[in-house]
């Protein structure tokens, strides 16, 4: 079976600056990939390039066998790329429900199902997006991406800057999405120990290049690459 996502020889950045060099990896249907690395190594640039908001210098991005690297972001979204940006970027002037319905596409993820995953959003359905707490905004950002019924979900540091109790809640929801719903996902994260247990595969970026690729379980069993490239253990 062909891979859901196949990235080859990808170089990208902003303006004239090349941030990612010669990145290659593949992701199967229903697989989740952890993208690890220190600050500023190109993790966000990798997701942004898959979404289509950076400048691509070389390489290809194939989604379901179709080349999408040359397509505009709205076309990629239409083909199933769902994005949860690092800044969340929810529509502040729209209500919670409108944030979801404005981008919704037909598919298994209805608004009601999103509310089922994040009951807090249902409670706040009529509130404006701008009035939500950080954790609620993150839930809304994930819910908004789900409402587009993506084939591939891209999550950029989904737990960053949130209170531990909210992080637990989000990780539980993500676990459900990845394990039970078998949604294919790429999760960028600085804290490896949070996401290695819920992903199948992992890659480590260092200065815009992939320096390690393996099963997540292998990294948990032998955290030497984590120590080497992230300066942490897999605890």
């Amino acid at each position: 079976m062909a891979d859901l996502l196949s990235v080859e020889n990808l170089s990208a950045g902003y303006g004239r600056a090349v941030v990612l060099s010669d990145v290659a990896f593949a992701l199967g249907e229903g697989e989740a990939l952890a993208v690890l690395g220190r600050n500023g190594v190109g993790k966000t640039t990798l997701l942004d390039t898959l979404v289509g908001v950076t400048r691509r210098f070389a390489g290809s991005i194939a989604l379901g066998g179709r080349e999408v690297g040359t397509l505009a972001p709205e076309m990629r979204a239409g083909l199933g790329v769902g994005w949860v940006p690092q800044e969340r970027n929810i529509f502040r002037s729209l209500s919670v429900e409108e944030n979801l319905t404005a981008v919704a596409r037909p598919g298994p993820w209805t608004i009601e199902r999103v509310f089922g995953l994040f009951p807090r959003l249902k409670e706040r359905a009529r509130q404006s997006g701008g009035s939500l707490s950080g954790g609620e905004q993150q839930m809304l950002a994930i819910g908004r991406a789900l409402a587009t019924n993506p084939r591939l979900l891209l999550l950029d540091e989904p737990t960053e800057g949130l209170a531990p109790i909210i992080v637990q809640e989000l990780l539980a929801a993500l676990t459900r999405l990845l394990r039970e719903e078998k949604l294919a996902a790429i999760i960028v994260e600085q804290h490896a120990q949070k996401i290695l247990p819920i992903t199948q595969r992992a890659l480590i970026l260092e200065r815009g290049r992939i320096v390690h690729q393996s099963e997540s379980a292998a990294l948990l069993a032998d955290p030497a690459p984590l120590e080497r490239f992230l300066g942490v253990t897999g605890r």
Partner: peptide, 12 residues
């Protein structure tokens, strides 16, 4: 509110 983000969610 944010044309770039809306585009990334499929809004033409």
């Amino acid at each position: 509110e944010d044309a770039d983000i809306a585009a990334a969610y499929g809004v033409d």
